[in-house]
Structures are given as C-alpha cells and as structure tokens.
Design a protein around this nucleic acid. Sequence first.
DNA 1: AGACTTTAATTGTCCAGACATTCTAGATGT
DNA 2: ACATCTAGAATGTCTGGACAATTAAAGTCT
Lengths: 254, 254
Amino acid sequence: MAADVRTPLYRQISDSLLAGIREGKFPVGSFLPGELELIDRFDASRHTIREALRVLEDMGLVKRQRGRGTLVLSTEAAPAYVQMVRSPSELFSYPDSSQFRLLTDDRIKADKSLARELGCQVGDEWVQISGLRTLGAEGMPICWANVYVIPEYGSIAQRLGGSSRPVYEMIAETFKESIENITVRLTAGVLSAQKAETLGVEEGTPSLSVSRFYQGRGGRVFEVSISEHPASNFSYTFEFTRGWQTADHWSWSN
Amino acid sequence: MAADVRTPLYRQISDSLLAGIREGKFPVGSFLPGELELIDRFDASRHTIREALRVLEDMGLVKRQRGRGTLVLSTEAAPAYVQMVRSPSELFSYPDSSQFRLLTDDRIKADKSLARELGCQVGDEWVQISGLRTLGAEGMPICWANVYVIPEYGSIAQRLGGSSRPVYEMIAETFKESIENITVRLTAGVLSAQKAETLGVEEGTPSLSVSRFYQGRGGRVFEVSISEHPASNFSYTFEFTRGWQTADHWSWSN
DNA sequence: AGACTTTAATTGTCCAGACATTCTAGATGT
DNA sequence: ACATCTAGAATGTCTGGACAATTAAAGTCT
C-alpha cells in the first residue's frame, strides 16, 4: 500500500479474513470462526480481533450478531454508485419560492387506470388533492400536480391552504409519520388540452411526469404525488458517485 | 428508544456530545475536548470515550486526527436519502438481451445546440456514434441512441460491431479509464419524423430522453450517451432509502 | 414427542494499562 | 527574524481482564 511502512495488525487480520471470504473458505451464509478461535489462530488480543471484524462489517461483508456469530453476507465488496440527498425536497428540483395552489380535494376510489398508476388495488380509497405548483402565490404555473393521500391522513387537505411546505412534510409532522423510502418514477406523455391551457402552453405539448411514492414505517405507501411538467421548461437530473457498497452501514433513526 | 431498557454508556456520552455540537457548544471548525478531558468529565474509560467518538465520526459529524484532536465538521447529521446501485448498468433499465445497432460514426464539432446539450464548448470535437438499441440482433427497436466520445477514445467505435456491452464499459477496459461519477438527466420531447419511423411509432409521439454523462479521473467527461425512447413503452424509476448521511464513510477505491 | 430449563457459545460493553505515531507550541541557536 | 530541536498533547494500536446480553444446543420432565 501507500507510504504506510507497516500495516496495523488488525488490518492484516481483516485482510486475511477477507482473502478467506473471497476464496470461498467462508461462503456466504456461513459464520466466520468465533472471536475466541480467531484470538488463538492469529495470536492477537480480543480487541484487535474485534477491530479486524469491524473493518469487514464496515465493508458490508459480514454482520456480527450477539450470541450467534459473525455471518458472511457477501464475498465481494463491489464498488457501488451512490446518489444521496439530505432531504426529500432535494428530489423536487423546485425553487424555494414555488407554492402549491390547491384546486380540488376529493375522496375517490381508484379505477383500473389509477390503480395501475398508483400501484394499488382497484377500489382502494384515496384522498385526491389536485392543484398547480406556481412561482410565488400569483406566479407562473410550473406544473400540474395531483397528490394522493391515504384516507387516514386525508384531513391534511384542510391544512394546505396558503402553505408552501410539501405535503409529505406536513403529514410527517401532523401524524408523526416517518418517511423511510421514496420511489421516483419518470414518464413522458402529452399534456391534455385542459392542462395545457392552465399551464399556458400549446395543446399537444409533451410533458414529463414525475411520480413520487412516499413510504412510511412498515413500507406502507401513504402518499403519492404526480407532477406533470411541460417538457420545454423541465428536466430531471441526478448524480451518482462511486464508493464501496456499505448498505448495512446506514443507521436507522427513529 | 425502542425496547432497549438501558442505553450503553458510550451511547449516552455520544448523545451528550452530539447535543453539545448541536447547541453550538462545539462549533464547526473547533475541536472537541481531548480524550483525557472526556475521560475525566464523564468518568469513563478511554475505550468507552473512544467508542462514543467513533459513533460521532460514523455520523460524519467529527473527524479524529492523530496528534491534533477531534475536529467538528458539521452540527447536524441530517438523515439522508440514498439510492445505490452496484454498477452503472443498473442505471440503464434495459433487458440484458438488448443490443446496440451502430448506424453511423462521425467525427464532429459541437455546434451551439449540441454544446448546450453536452455541456461543452462550441467547436469541441467529439466522435458521435449513432444507432438503435434493439431487443436482440434483429429485434424491435427500443430507442434511438447517440453516444458522444472524446476523440482520444474515439477508436472505440471500431470495436462496437456485434457487441452488446455498454460503450462506457469497453472504454474503461480498453483505455484503463475509471468511472468516478455519473450524471443522469431526463427530459421529455417529441420524436422527429425520422426517428418515429425508425422506431415504429407515429410521428409526434412524445419521447423520454435519458442523457448520461460519464466522468473519469479528474472529473473529465469522456462519454455522453443520449437515448430517446417513445413514451409509450418507457419509464425511469429509482428508489431512495433513508439513512444517516455518512458521506465520509464511503471509501474511495482506485 | 413436545415443552421447559439449563448450559454453553458468542458477541456487546466496560474497565485498565502501555507503547507508537503524529502534530503543535515553545525553547534554543544562529 | 528564521531555522531547528524538544517536550507535551493528542489519537492510534495492542494487550489483558471481566461481566452482560443474546442465541442455540443439550438435558430434563411430562
């Protein structure tokens, strides 16, 4: 390695175990030798052994389980490409000054088309909140937006008036919901005559639709928002940076 | 917290230090009290103190520096939402059986429009490789694809014949280039008459364009690929999972 | 055969100590 | 005033020990 004259013992041990994992000596699903055995094998202290195991755990290769052992999860810490944002609003690409202008809010049952779009069952009930996202209170409309909320949180519709905060954020706060997972889907289409007129563009203008599915605890989708943008003034960009895959490393807040 | 009857001491200490960081007691750029001082203050062993500091380091809040101290990097470890894929090809959403059918390859200079699209200077030279991505060798065209490669790697065009491997992968292998960063941008548009005919859809069909910018070492963009899909059969989906932001946690391979 | 208890295995947490390595501030010399 | 050296501060690495908590295997009882 680099300019490092000497490799710490714990690193030599983790390298040795890593080689063993890669060679198939410790297959995925098996357990590494226990700490006591490793202490004996490498003639090192328990602290040093545990430090070596922690390196492998940080790489996502193993998972230590009290009372059980050290389970091998993967034989390879393949490089991963990561996109990371600090808050869901960074997925929006909207200027801070934009606002949501509520037009209608209705309690509906999903028909076949909507069920497919929302990924739910035909007949499922949702509260559908339709509106426009605009630049400022009286500004240019940016996009048409439909927000679907589960009936349990449907009363959020009454709280939207005049607020520029995202619906998911208000739901999280009001109902103590946690946003655990967000799926974003992009599709292209054509704006209907009505929407084109409202958005101030020609009928037949292509559009980019962004659907976001917000999942709370236990994986339940509690909100889906679908924004439809005229293609002329909207693109969606995201960026991936290379790094080790350490999925298990994310600590889960509560 | 959860069902945990008792919080480990090291966690209590890291929580206490975290509160101090958040309260501004330890501003960004300052050093936390040294280990010896913390041992005294919390009446805990050095191991326990170091474990507490490691928690903060894992959260990306501090950085321990031998001989120097523990530098405060940030006052807030905001939860981050992460999308992670194992390889760039996972960003493609193409079936494995798809193939790239090369139509033309030319050496061009970027005009104003192309320069804006590629994010380069007017007059910059690129090798433009145009083609169709199809299902299998004789299959249905999926999309129209233009790949732009820097002239240095332009000879890759001669190697594409009959291969189903991605261009970026062949470049990485042939020229020992490394893919450090990928930016993906999605826009909506309308297929031109020529492209619509080639893709077997009606003229005026909306399209979803996916542009991918591959950066190598030093941040240089060595390839840009632009795929244009008929909207009817293509959507782009990605998923974010919540976790602590631990940007410093990614180890950088080479 | 199944349920329950006990024992052993295994990792987690906490303590203490010592030496190594790096960095910085202060002292000393030119 | 600048360069060099030294001592002290600070974290890194490694050792040893002990008790706690969890899991699984073995033994016992019905």
